[in-house]
Design a protein around this nucleic acid. Structure first.
Length: 736
DNA sequence: ACCAGTAATATC
DNA sequence: ATATTACTGGTT
């Protein structure tokens, strides 16, 4: 029986809240460090674990295993990331392993990191001794190796290249493309434009905090066109001058070449870029470039927050209100909030930017937790484009049975815009042709067979790009029946608008116009996104119809008219954030009009012209919206005045899910004095999803701590029944 | 007797 | 989460 004098605490990407202890063989004692990956046998599998700690004290476990090999020469996660992982596990109620592995590029989970293929077994000894000298084989066990391969545990690119050239071996597999060096862009670092006074003031505040040193968060609230990005660029420049690194987070949807170009043109090849369309190898390369110092700035979506910057000074979170910063699978972290935590851990600056900040951030700024930087004016000194409300109730009244999709004022505006040779953007946040298929005889709505949602009719789209019924939640597809399947006779009527329907309407009304549609269905194919954008830029499109994805992050210089076909869309959702979302989206989409020198105008078609959120949005009155919404949230004890935790119980058997939720709610309610209010259980807004029934419990508390405590108590007393899956979501982004 | 499909079980 | 084993229930 082997005995060890050093033991490693190791975590895995599994939802188990235990830390596992392995023996460290004498050969590894000198090199092992927290933050290194290792290859170990775990349960019945051989897998990758992460060392989180070391101890001289022998654990009291019956059959201790030992580490097979180390996969890193240097820790792949920095000390602050290790701490951030602990915080995430604690805060979001997940395992440390889930949190830490979520930080790494997916290629890092695979075991082993790379193989070198020997050309001849006889050369093994020579190659091994070379690699051993380089420290690349430290602690590698040879038992379960395929003949002719050598597992390489570390980043030793130059050596591997040299070996390959020598003809001794060839690179066989591992992380694809890793051997390519990071592409170097040629660049001229451009000087930024001169700052106007509001920008100057904002930058000075950030500069002051940088000089002072230490942790600080700013909320940069600036209207569309106020030059927020220039502030980011200047702040980054200051950080780089100080020899530090910066992280810039952008919502995935805005991570277009246009946006990235602003950073690369200023900082050239010091910029690493991380986005969802990168391959595994390229992602690893970009990620590692922050660790080696090849890059000093990383621009990316949510997970770019975890770039292994060794000398981090600044984190920018652009469009901080965006819900896409919240990960919708475990670990369910919000990258904006985790960014603030990371800035705190490294004693750096966090800058949250938005034209329409979240109420959480607004509240924190008002409370003095964040420095508030306001930029209410546009750089070009022009007023924001006017928004005009069109009351669809009136429109429908006067035009009778017509029930027009486009109101007369909007139609007229489109005609004028076409005549002037300018571009129109029509926005509706629903894809497909119709939103509901209804039986005219029995009134039945056609539903998805495995979800409790109506199916959308698509004229094109689907897998074969043919007409189909589609479930937007599980992607189920089926034919449109001639007769109602429920009453076996009634004719089916397609009700409700989607972007395809608008496309039809425009073709009828403006047959001469060149039309493009941009939504999930037209951009699914690689590169089609870019090709549509290019057409718009080249003025080969007169009218662009789109969903959310046209509302965010794009700069369409030729667009002077924006028509919001249904400004109320989303307002009726049973979610406490629905009016916040609508407000933000309307202001956002309005920002697409008249960005260049020509003036723009926005038409908002609505059935609720008196709705406070729509009214406030129509005059860009964030102040009014914020105050009215904060008052409401305070009254209802919703965030930012409370913290929420959502428990979802899912099961294929409805009773199992509902009973598990009932039992939990009973237990939670019985914990008097816990400081947590319990609501529910209730069926989720989408009661059945992908064949699973869902029941929810909502927890409210003044501070986040009590929710975690009561959950821990729950877990120590009650086990989730078999066949039921429980999801815990802290600071949920949506209660649906 | 046998196989696929599903539930149960443990993970240093 | 995941790999493996145990257990169904229905067929050859």
């Amino acid at each position: 029986l082997p005995s060890f004098n050093l033991f490693a605490e190791i975590v895995f990407p599994v939802p188990l809240k235990q830390v596992f202890t392995y023996g460290v063989s004498p050969a590894l004692e000198g090199s092992i460090q927290p933050g290194m990956r290792c290859s170990v046998s775990f349960g019945r599998r051989q897998t990758v674990g992460l060392v989180t700690g070391l101890s001289r004290v022998a654990p009291n476990v019956p059959n201790l295993k030992s580490i097979n090999s180390l996969m890193d020469i240097q820790p792949c996660l920095t000390p602050d990331l290790l701490k951030l992982g602990q915080w995430m596990a604690d805060y979001y109620y997940c395992s440390v392993g889930e949190a830490l592995f979520a930080m790494m590029p997916s290629g890092y989970r695979k075991n082993p990191k790379a193989f070198l293929g020997l050309k001849a077994e006889a050369q093994r000894e020579a190659v091994e001794s070379l690699l051993a000298q380089a420290g690349a084989l430290r602690g590698v066990k040879w038992d379960n190796l395929k003949a002719g391969t050598v597992p390489v545990t570390a980043r030793i690119k130059p050596l591997m290249e040299a070996l390959k050239k020598s003809g001794l071996l060839e690179l066989k597999l591992g992380e694809p493309g890793e051997m390519k060096s990071r592409e170097k862009q040629t660049h001229e670092t451009k000087q930024g434009p001169a700052l106007h006074p509001q920008q100057q003031a904002a930058l000075s505040a950030i500069e002051g905090a940088l000089k002072e040193g230490g942790f600080k968060t700013f909320l940069l609230q600036g209207v569309t066109g106020s030059g927020k990005t220039e502030i980011y660029l200047r702040a980054i420049a200051l950080v780089l001058e100080a020899g530090k690194q910066a992280i810039v987070l952008i919502p995935e949807i805005a991570l277009t070449p246009q946006t990235v170009e602003r950073f690369t043109s200023r900082f050239g090849d010091r910029v690493a870029v991380l986005h969802s369309r990168l391959g595994a190898g390229e992602r690893v390369r970009q990620w590692e470039s922050m660790a080696t110092g090849d890059a000093s700035v990383v621009v990316g979506a949510r997970s770019a927050l975890f770039a292994p910057a060794k000398n981090l000074g600044l984190i920018v979170v652009d469009e901080e209100h965006e819900s896409s910063y919240k990960q919708d699978e475990s670990p369910r972290y919000n990258a904006r909030d985790a960014a603030i935590k990371r800035a705190q851990l490294v004693g750096g600056i966090a800058v949250l930017g938005s034209a329409t900040p979240s109420l959480e951030s607004l509240h924190n700024a008002k409370a003095g937790k964040y420095g508030l930087l306001l930029m209410p004016d546009r750089v070009n000194q022009k007023p924001l484009p006017k928004m005009r409300l069109v009351d669809l109730k009136e429109e429908w009244k006067t035009r009778g049975a017509d029930r027009p999709i486009l109101s007369l004022p909007l139609e007229e505006a489109i005609r004028e815009t076409l005549a002037k040779g300018e571009q129109t953007l029509l926005f509706l946040n629903r894809r497909g042709f119709s939103t509901v298929a209804l039986c005219l005889q029995c009134g039945e709505q056609l539903q998805c067979p495995s979800c409790s949602v109506p199916v959308t009719f698509h004229k094109s789209g689907g897998t074969k790009n043919e007409q189909t019924l589609l479930c937007h939640y599980c992607n189920w597809q089926g034919p449109l029946p001639e007769k109602c399947p429920s009453c076996k006779g009634g004719p089916i009527r397609l009700v409700g608008l989607g972007t395809e329907r608008i496309e039809d309407e425009i073709a009828k009304k403006f047959p001469e116009a060149r039309v493009a549609r941009m939504d999930l269905d037209t951009t699914r194919r690689m590169g089609s996104h870019e090709s549509i954008l290019k057409k718009i830029m080249k003025k080969e499109v007169d009218i662009l119809i789109g969903t959310q994805m046209v509302a965010k992050g794009h700069d369409f210089p030729g667009v002077t008219l924006v028509g919001v076909v249904g400004a109320d869309t989303g307002l009726a959702l049973p979610d406490f954030r629905s009016s916040e979302r609508v407000f933000q989206l309307l202001v956002q989409v309005a920002g697409r009009a008249g960005r260049a020198d020509k003036e723009g105008i926005i038409y908002l078609q609505t059935f609720n012209p008196e709705h406070p959120s729509i009214k406030a949005a129509s005059v860009y009155d964030f102040q009014a919206f914020g105050e009215q919404e904060l008052a409401l949230r305070k009254m209802l004890f919703y965030p930012p005045f409370s913290r929420l935790g959502l428990l979802v119980y899912r099961s294929k058997v409805e009773k199992n899910a509902s009973q598990a939720a009932e039992q939990t709610a009973r237990f939670l309610r019985a914990q008097k004095g816990s400081g947590v209010e319990i609501f529910g259980p209730a069926p989720a807004a989408i009661a059945k999803l992908r064949g699973q029934y869902r029941f929810q419990i909502l927890m409210k508390s003044e501070k986040p701590g009590p929710i975690r405590q009561v959950l821990a108590l729950l877990d120590s007393k009650i086990e989730t029944p078999k066949g039921v899956l429980r999801v815990v979501d802290l600071d949920p982004q949506s209660l649906l």
